[in-house]
Design a protein around this nucleic acid. Sequence first.
DNA 1: CTCCTTACCGTACGCTGTATTGCGTGGATA
DNA 2: TATCCACGCAATACAGCGTACGGTAAGGAG
Lengths: 230, 230
Amino acid sequence: MVPVWERPEPRPRATPVPLSRAKIADAAIRLADAHGLDGLSVRRIAKELDVGPMRLYDYVANRSELLDLMVDAVYAQIAEAGQHSDWRTTLLAIVRRTRAAALEHEWFSDLLGGRPHLGPHALAVGESTAAALSQAPGIRGVDDLQRALGALNAFIVGALRREVTERRTARSTGTELNAWQASLGPYLTRMLDTGRYPTVARLVIEGAHLDAEETFAHNLTTLLDGVAGR
Amino acid sequence: MVPVWERPEPRPRATPVPLSRAKIADAAIRLADAHGLDGLSVRRIAKELDVGPMRLYDYVANRSELLDLMVDAVYAQIAEAGQHSDWRTTLLAIVRRTRAAALEHEWFSDLLGGRPHLGPHALAVGESTAAALSQAPGIRGVDDLQRALGALNAFIVGALRREVTERRTARSTGTELNAWQASLGPYLTRMLDTGRYPTVARLVIEGAHLDAEETFAHNLTTLLDGVAGR
DNA sequence: CTCCTTACCGTACGCTGTATTGCGTGGATA
DNA sequence: TATCCACGCAATACAGCGTACGGTAAGGAG
């Protein structure tokens, strides 16, 4: 089976609102932004487009192909980060856009690292990243590049997942304040009061005020320094 | 609502095979190992235990609490990494066990970073990690520790997700060889032949032979050097 | 004008997680 | 020991999911 991006879009019939993969992806993204990935069903997308559920399967083979489409649409956003003069600013631009995209479309972080991203825009981002990284000092051959790329991607995936997860729990316990205070708070408090987790306790108590963006940037810098051979 | 780990297990009746949270988690883990997270349903677990589906809801509030239980069971495995004399070997031991667990239970990597891990064993692992890391030179205060912990966790989550994903696609295209060769292979080949992704092409062609474990260890070392202020 | 192909759509199936209802039995109490 | 009640357990039911399938109607060709 040929991947989604390669199949020709079925020629639209003379319908009042002809469908297209882009339209489907847009609707899906809108829904996922609003209700999360769990609230995203083929049927809801179809309803959003005023269409029977099975119509979508003329454009997409699976639900997961639909997710691929959404992911690549986000990569298109990310790919708009231009090339800069030196490798580091280029990388910083790409990563910053990635982070922005992940915070705008939180479901994106749920999909990060979950399946290979092979869409054309994902490849474009990968190309820019690899090209920039290959310019770094300390990257001598293909092996160095592959390793460094792995480290960078791992950090991005992990950090963004973490940040989105934190943001979500903060939101769910913020809006419904009693939830945190009535269940997890006391539970955690009691756990920490056992004295079995002194370091964690210190972290929870003393260190809640770190700015997420600053932390992200700091760690990214550290990592880039590391792979660039300092 | 009190979290799973805090609620008392319902006292088992005099049934031939009394249920327990541990037994449920075991069965669930067995099934998830065999059929992945998608093949894991409450009903199948119940059938595995020769029990009606709703029986499980006496021990667990919903499916996601069940996943929490499974995750914490894996953390119990990881927590067996003992303490060593210096911070670095301790960390290496923990991380190595984590990687082993993720490769043994591939679904674990799907859950990594997806929701806060607050089970008692997860907390224990967190404590060991934090305690070890706080001994590293270059970590001066709580803020440094929090940042470094974030970087380390991000790397672990991202790297393991990546590795498991690669292993999965390799397996699915290895067992069903024509699948890769007949769909993704040509697609990728054609994409790379466009010349739009030269660096990626170089990576795909020249650099497939890197050992996963070695790469992981290398990058981990780099990162630890970085956060420890070298 | 007729026929045939083909794009489309409604219906249906097996599955999911979970709420609810009712039964039967074990243990505490008189 | 007899009684009763509470509670452990099962079966049924429901809404929603992804998607296979078969009929229908419409467009182009002869």
